[in-house]
Write a protein that binds this DNA or RNA. Structure first.
Lengths: 178, 178
DNA sequence: TTGTGAGTATACCGACCGGTGTGTTTACGT
DNA sequence: ACGTAAACACACCGGTCGGTATACTCACAA
């Protein structure tokens, strides 16, 4: 059941590269971080990066997948599968709050990537789209379990609140979670 | 009462530069658009741009202010100041829907700029922060006029829904406005 | 008439970008 | 003991970045 995000069996150096890239791309932005800086911070030559990842585009995709996987794991760890659907919705927002408090100082990585990767062909955009679809489906399923009359609508609204909360916390101060 | 956004009295060439930059920065992203391209598309030399705007940083700030002013004008044109507060909240969301349908294919310019300008010192970030604060105040005032028990909370929630709707429309398909 | 501000044309700067090629060293499994 | 994969060092590529310098034209106003 771990087949959603494949495990690409990274070499030790590739692992370091991905970790460093994840940190740098998120905090400084994808376009402002060059491959040379990634190589230097990972204690690796550019050659090694290109041998392992092929191109910056693919490294970016790997970065986005890694961020997404980390968030899903985080959420799963903060969820009690046996709790009521209503409680699980609340727990999701609480997990988001905790997530932002500790690992998220620059907003949503997917939204940021979508802003930076203006080329519609960039495969990173598809990762972000998939992630947002997943999030909406998550809330829609919870709404359905709650017995909502229009689970699709409620799920979308919850997802929008989720997204808006991230933006609000990022660009302004504290939000007020309901 | 037009003193919120100053009118900088642009020369004809500067006007063209700002229009072109507004279009390019929004559709392709700030960091991926070079000054040379802006100059070419505006039918102007780089020298002229640097004579009028001084630096790319300042041109970016002018771009963000122009976008913000356009949105506020658009919203004001779609608002009936004599309508009930409740109707004006609805009208705001309808204006947002119309705005996104016709001029907004790449999400919120302020959020995108915030993603691209990772340097906390960049003055463009302050423009985005101010704009988001203004939006939240707008909803908070409307909530207060509605007689809400906690206008600040309701205003923040409405602003979050607003923001989330923009993200949803941008990265996924149609949203479902309440 | 004579400035002056606006704009043009062109060449240039150092720095950095993503990406490649060649060859060498290290570590591990067989 | 040997082969292979991983990582190394280093030099190089064409191209673009933001920004500057010099010198010229043009329109308009005092």
């Amino acid at each position: 059941m771990t087949g959603i995000t494949e495990a690409p069996r990274l070499t030790p150096a590739a692992r370091r590269v991905l970790d460093v890239a994840t940190e740098l791309f998120y905090t400084r932005g994808i376009n402002t971080v060059g491959m040379e800086l990634v190589a230097e911070r990972a204690g690796v030559t550019k050659k090694t990066i290109y041998d392992r990842f092929g191109s910056k585009q693919r490294l970016v995709v790997a970065y986005l997948r890694a961020r997404d996987a980390r968030w899903r794991d985080f959420l799963a760890a903060h969820q009690d599968p046996d709790a009521s659907p209503r409680a699980r919705i609340g727990a999701t927002f609480e997990a988001l709050d905790a997530w932002m408090r500790q690992e998220n100082q620059r907003g949503c990585a997917m939204v940021n990537a979508y802003a930076e990767l203006s080329d519609p062909e960039h495969p990173g955009r598809a990762v972000a789209e998939e992630q947002k679809g997943w999030l909406r489906d998550l809330y829609t399923d919870l709404a359905r379990e709650c017995g909502a009359t229009a689970p699709g609508t409620l799920g979308s609204v919850l997802a929008m609140l989720h997204e808006g909360a991230v933006v609000a916390r990022n660009v302004t101060g504290r939000p007020t979670p309901p």
